[in-house]
């Protein structure tokens, strides 16, 4: 019993000091996770992962579209929470060949766990052969978002879903 009481006191001290240190979020960008993402029921919000990159970190998400028609890479700087940001997108056929003329692309973002999307209306414009720029994106909630890249061309319609963890920082940490 005595030992138990002493150990408990020590635990309390330990708890106190363990709470204090700063987290050290990694500066590595969220890794690209290609492929389809499950749409869950309204699950409780998950806390941001410790690995969520800090605002300003360069991110590159990419992979192959669901039906395997296209390959795409989405690049942007991790936005501050609730701040407008832009993305740059490169799309090719899955073979690596250039897209057929007249291909169109849209970029959107949703939070499947919360069943909502962005409150803004982004605009996607051609930035070069196989390149698109999207302005007016805004992620107003921290946590898991999924970028949806829809590509349409004579090769067919297909979609990439690219998960991304929005960090909670709205101001520079």
């Amino acid at each position: 019993m005595r030992v138990g009481v002493v150990a408990c006191g020590a635990c309390a001290v330990l708890a106190c000091t363990r709470a204090a240190p700063m987290p050290s979020p990694t500066a590595t960008a969220t890794p690209a996770t290609p492929g389809a993402t499950a749409v869950a029921d309204a699950a409780p919000a998950a806390s941001p992962q410790p690995s969520a990159a800090l605002p300003g970190t360069a991110v590159e998400l990419g992979g192959r579209s669901k039906a395997g028609k296209y390959t795409a890479t989405l690049r942007f700087s991790v936005p501050k929470l609730g701040e407008l940001f832009s993305t740059n997108l490169r799309v090719t056929l899955a073979s690596g060949a250039a897209l057929p003329d007249g291909a169109t692309v849209t970029v959107d973002a949703t939070m499947p766990e919360h069943r909502h999307g962005m409150m803004t209306q982004p605009a996607t414009t051609v930035a070069g052969p196989g390149l698109w720029r999207t302005d007016g994106m805004k992620l107003h909630m921290q946590g898991r978002w999924v970028f949806a890249v829809d590509v349409s061309s004579t090769a067919g319609d297909d979609r990439l879903e690219l998960p991304f963890e929005q960090p909670p920082e709205a101001t520079p940490p």
Partner: peptide, 16 residues
């Protein structure tokens, strides 16, 4: 005494 320590994600949220 029985406070559970903040996890790193919790602490990050608090500081945000």
């Amino acid at each position: 005494a029985n406070d559970t320590p903040w996890t790193a994600p919790e602490l990050r949220l608090i500081l945000s």
